[in-house]
Design a protein around this nucleic acid. Structure first.
Lengths: 252, 252
DNA sequence: ATAAGGCTTTACGCAACGTGAAGGTCAATA
DNA sequence: TATTGACCTTCACGTTGCGTAAAGCCTTAT
């Protein structure tokens, strides 16, 4: 039996455009062309199309399918294993996303404002990842794996109520810090009060406090442009002022 | 603090191109343009970008994000609920795909040929779905829900070994049918032997055999172009011949 | 003054087709 | 036989979220 595009299309459930496209990219060529230039497909092509659709169902790209179909000695198993890896990654990521969206929806019923919630759920993991990436090695070298792992765990375990309190404290901290900046003295009472709030704020994510780590963090603030940008957003030079105040606080 | 594209890009982790694109589609416009035409972003834009990236992480389309961000009274919860639905569908589908790919890989170790396996795993559920869609109502009306459900269940429970045997039987059936066609007589011994093989083949997916259902299936074969195409692929007119032979077999 | 590095707009490319547009072909009917 | 109407063909643009040049202006440092 022979089929034109539309016939094969109806037979297989794909569109005519799809078949022309498959012809175009060399995935499925018609058996022959009629005298008037029509595409004519035969039984062999029907079978091939079945196989193509099978792999397509599995989310394999048409490029991969082309290799699979047209090279009988194609190394299928490793390719599929790699493919399954990607699928599983996607799967895990979706799971995470779904849970985040669910929490986001729930939070709309509760007292936590949307923007808080966004900042909370959306960036928690990201913060940990970035933290790990940028400072992980340094911190692990300096203070050991335990501290870093504990810190990450604590971050993940943060409740939303905690998060709200943490945010409140940070706001107080920023406002105190700005006031302190006016004095121009990192050792002033105002500055030290601000740093104390900073310490409390850190307590939410730090499993164990140490003056050395606090001072180390101050260095990071100054050297990392994202932190600098964040603090200098309020007043230019605030980051350096904060570092100096922490130095005093930590007795460095 | 003010930022140029590249500065904000580094700060937030996205590319400059992305920021220009967001400007272009009206998702995130710079606070102002410098005298020389540079994009200048402020603290407000930094916050907005954070929110944008949050939703982007959740696989929300930029179009949706635009609505969410720029219309404070946007009805977020139903939108997110709808979104979560899509995510869950994707998630479930991925699960199914992963399992199929896994089985596909496993089968490469066993004795079942790839092509058999493809046909088996990939189309089993699809067959059921299509079956249900096309004939479900008719069959359920005629023979009751139980038969249809049982049939679907039996199909899903088919082992691969069964599937191989099923395929063998179908091959014999086709070859017998072709021989029978030569005789031109649907009542010939050859034709009836073929129909008997057809019956055995059916037994793999039919929970209970009945002559009425068999004859009904023959009608479907003739009226459905996919079946017609399938059988007429071998010899034109074979479908009608098969129907007539089944009629005789079923005493209709 | 010149080079380096930032910025700009313009525009093609990616995946897998959907959706016309403009025009040829084929079978059946008035 | 001429004309529908239903096919078929080849362009070619639109989709999503940017990556990646290309060509040229702006700014800063040497």
């Amino acid at each position: 039996m022979e089929y034109t595009v539309h016939q094969l299309a109806k037979l297989s459930g794909v569109s005519g455009r799809t078949l022309r496209y498959y012809d175009e990219i060399g995935l499925l060529k018609p058996a022959r062309m009629s005298s008037s230039g029509y595409r004519i497909y035969g039984g062999k092509e029907v079978d091939l199309l079945q196989q193509i659709l099978f792999y397509r169902e599995l989310d394999v790209s048409l490029e991969e399918i082309t290799k699979i179909i047209h090279h009988p000695d194609f190394d299928l198993v490793p390719a599929l294993q790699q493919h399954i890896q990607k699928l599983q990654d996607k799967h895990a990521r979706l799971e995470q996303i779904i849970s985040t969206v669910q929490k986001t929806i729930e939070s709309k019923g509760g007292g936590i404002s949307m923007s808080d919630h966004e900042k909370f759920e959306g960036f928690k993991q990201k913060m940990i990842d970035e933290n790990e990436e940028k400072y992980g090695k340094e911190v692990r070298d300096k203070y050991g794996d335990q501290l870093m792992d504990d810190s990450n765990a604590k971050m993940m375990g943060l409740s939303e109520a905690d998060y709200v309190r943490m945010n409140d404290i940070e706001k107080s901290f920023i406002s105190e810090l700005k006031k302190a900046y006016e004095t121009g003295d990192p050792a002033s009472a105002e500055a030290q009060k601000a740093v104390d709030l900073h310490r409390k704020w850190l307590a939410f994510t730090w499993p164990k406090y140490s003056k050395e780590a606090h001072a180390g963090l101050a260095d990071m603030y100054v050297s990392d442009e994202r932190f600098t940008a964040y603090y200098d957003q309020h007043i230019k030079g605030l980051t350096v002022f904060l570092r100096d105040a922490i130095y005093v606080y930590a007795g460095k």
